[in-house]
């Protein structure tokens, strides 16, 4: 039972940074912008969080700063692709590389020093229940926050006029412009939001998941988040399921390594990535679903006509 609880809670925690980053990217892509730079924005978020904590800030403001740093780096990308209409693929890749460099610079003095970790929130009464308590009610606040964000984003995209506007801007910016919506401004907002979410995801890694700074500590999670959005066919619930799959495989392979399974640890470490991609590819084979939810203008620059 203890092992099950450990694997379950480990899965939820390992999935959290992905959930933040992928949900943010989902909103960005729904508005028709492809930001490949999630990895870079997560690293900037992670390094900013560590820097803030070492500068004496409490954990919560440190997370807010990480979100801001992620948003600012995303806005750099936004200026390039929305105002100057550069190629979104190239600009996104540049952001990924830029983020890696900047984060290494921010974090250069904190190599492997443990940071103050985010405390768990032991929810009164519910958290004291046997089994149920440790399974559901003893996480840190960011885990709960990730679920609140999931609910908010799903509600916003599919139940509000604002979400409808974001989706239609992603389908046909020309039509949205023709009926009078400020396409570029809307896309700036979603891009900044996506950056903030990636920043929080990065901060989660460096002050909750493994409370220390290591260069390149995201280890490809930004790219997995990117793949999650595509293979989840741009639907929030599937993003969550995919993130849990990744988290679950991460924890299982760690347990496997601890138990000394006779497989090289490098192979085990690659399992979460391989398994997530394979499962998601199989799920996303339904072309009808893919086409219906695909933001038709994804990755295409938009130039408002006269």
């Amino acid at each position: 039972m203890d092992l099950f609880i450990a694997i379950f809670t480990g899965t939820i925690i390992a999935a959290t940074p992905l959930i933040f980053a992928a949900l943010g990217e989902l909103v960005v892509e729904k508005s028709g912008v492809l930001n490949l730079g999630i990895e870079g924005m997560m690293l900037i978020g992670a390094a900013t969080a560590v820097w803030s904590v070492f500068s004496g800030l409490p954990v919560l403001p440190a997370i807010v700063l990480s979100a801001l740093a992620g948003a600012v780096s995303a806005l750099l990308f936004g200026v390039l692709v929305l105002t100057f209409m550069t190629n979104q693929y190239a600009a996104g890749l540049a952001l990924a590389i830029f983020g890696s460099g900047v984060s290494a610079f921010i974090g250069r003095d904190f190599g492997s020093d443990p940071t103050t970790a985010l405390d768990e929130w032991h929810i009164p009464v519910l958290g004291d229940l046997p089994v149920i308590g440790p399974l559901f009610f003893q996480y840190d606040p960011l885990v709960y926050f990730s679920f609140i964000m999931f609910g908010l984003i799903s509600w916003f995209l599919y139940r509000t006029k604002g979400g409808l506007i974001v989706r239609t801007v992603g389908e046909s910016p020309q039509s949205a412009h023709a009926i009078g919506y400020p396409v570029i401004a809307i896309r700036y907002l979603t891009v900044a939001f996506g950056g903030a979410m990636a920043g929080i995801g990065g901060a989660y890694l460096s002050i909750a998941y493994t409370p220390l700074w290591v260069e390149e500590m995201t280890a490809g999670r930004g790219w997995i988040a990117l793949a999650l959005v595509v293979f989840a066919t741009w639907r929030p619930l599937r993003v969550i399921l995919g993130a849990w799959l990744f988290g679950g495989m991460t924890i299982l392979q760690l347990q496997g390594q601890a138990l000394g399974v006779g497989v090289p640890s490098e192979v085990l470490s690659s399992l979460p990535y391989v398994a997530t991609i394979v499962v998601l590819v199989i799920i996303s084979r339904n072309r009808q679903m893919m086409t219906l939810h695909f933001p038709a203008s994804l990755g295409k620059p938009f130039r408002p006509a006269g």
């Binding site: 006029k161 409808l164 506007i165 989706r167 239609t168 389908e171 046909s172 020309q174 039509s175 949205a176 023709a178 009926i179 009078g180 919506y181 219906l292 939810h293 038709a296």
Partner: peptide, 16 residues
């Protein structure tokens, strides 16, 4: 037409 294919008739109208 300036219509959005992936959303419903009433949502299209709601936008304008």
């Amino acid at each position: 037409f300036a219509l959005f294919e992936s959303v419903s008739v009433v949502e299209n109208i709601a936008l304008s």
